[in-house]
Design a protein around this nucleic acid. Structure first.
Lengths: 202, 202
DNA sequence: CGCCGTAACGTAACGCTGTTGCGTTATGGT
DNA sequence: ACCATAACGCAACAGCGTTACGTTACGGCG
């Protein structure tokens, strides 16, 4: 019994749409409960009914960003040359980061406090990594190298995140130069990680 | 003429000390003008007299962090083997990031709005990069590779920042595992960037 | 049919933030 | 000795996330 619920899925969608729009149009500083609810033309209470609190709403935004990350990764075709596939995956990562820069920063730089992701969210976000780890495993086998695929995947993640972080800060120059840096860095690190035979230099 | 200035350098030092202490002890959320001025036992106005505004104070904190970054880099001994020197510089970067994690995040992740660094600040912060770029230039010459040293330095910066970012997020596991990841990743990327002769793999 | 318990609502308030205007105070110059 | 001036502390302002509160709308029951 009780009053019927009005803060339904459509209100939820309105809020998320308004949040994405505000984030991309006016930056992270514009993301506030009052501004958001005014934009979506609902009461501020709706945020708390639907998402618990503001970090909860932002976490949902992050979850959606990780979905596009997963989509971009899974759109990369599998290749016989696993190392080349890894390089393509790195560029997919770059595309996802560039598509919604503020959303990417929201995920990683914690510009705004985001509630710690719950376990299923983490599991979902790891799907991008799983896609990479698969390619890493094949690359290691192809190049006859014994390494922990998970460790190697983390290392690659560090590299692409570092590149994305610097590029979004404008430190990599114009997009063309930045892409060249991406390609070159990823080529170098994969060359080092998956070099056939000979031990790496000191 | 006028009333003599009481918000002098010692008050400035008190505020910065209190800020560093609060940041390390209670995290970025504890950094507020009121909290800070109460901790330093000065009026909140002192922050504005001495630093312009809160971002100005945080920028000063960042400037000091970049100083320790420079110190750590310049403490690394020059070596005949420039590639080995670069690897040592990377570990120095890690030490600086781990020494004051929240300060590092303050510089790069913009947990809290920091005013854009002024030009001299940027110039100073670049001194760390200059130290690395010097080693990169020598490494390229030693390995007989033609590349833009500045570009390569940026690429290395991306790698170490990515590693630092992930480690501070706890994604690299315990410190021993993390250090192994650092060494391995840096070895791999330097191997790829400074490989003698043979073209890199596709 | 009408009442009541209940649940979700919008609003108004709380404590906090960074920032600024204002009344006060302390000093150097006339 | 007085006054202009500049820096002070305090209190207010607008905004934030969050929550307590009074209100409203409905389902079950007398």
């Amino acid at each position: 019994m009780g009053r019927p619920r009005e803060h339904g899925p459509e209100v939820r969608a309105q809020l998320l749409r308004a949040a994405a729009r505000l984030l991309n149009d006016e930056g992270p500083a514009a993301l506030s409960v009052r501004r958001l609810s005014a934009e979506a033309e609902v009461s501020s209470r709706a945020v708390y009914s639907l998402f618990g609190d503001m970090p909860g709403l932002l976490a949902e935004l992050c979850r959606r960003e990780s979905e596009t990350m997963v989509r971009r990764h899974e759109a990369v075709p599998r290749q016989a040359n696993a190392v080349a596939e890894i390089q393509a995956l790195a560029l997919a990562y770059r595309q996802a980061a560039l598509e919604y820069p503020d959303l990417y920063r929201l995920m990683f730089d914690r510009v705004v406090p985001v509630s710690s992701p719950s376990d299923p969210d983490v599991a979902y976000a790891m799907r991008s990594m799983a896609r990479v780890e698969d390619a890493v495993t094949r690359a290691l086998r192809q190049r006859r190298r014994r390494r922990d695929p998970h460790q190697v995947t983390l290392q690659l993640w560090a590299v692409v995140h570092g590149l994305a972080s610097l590029e979004l800060r404008g430190a990599l120059g114009d997009p063309a130069t930045a892409e060249a840096s991406w390609r070159d860095t990823v080529a170098a690190v994969t060359a080092g990680l998956f070099a056939e035979r000979r031990a790496r230099i000191a």
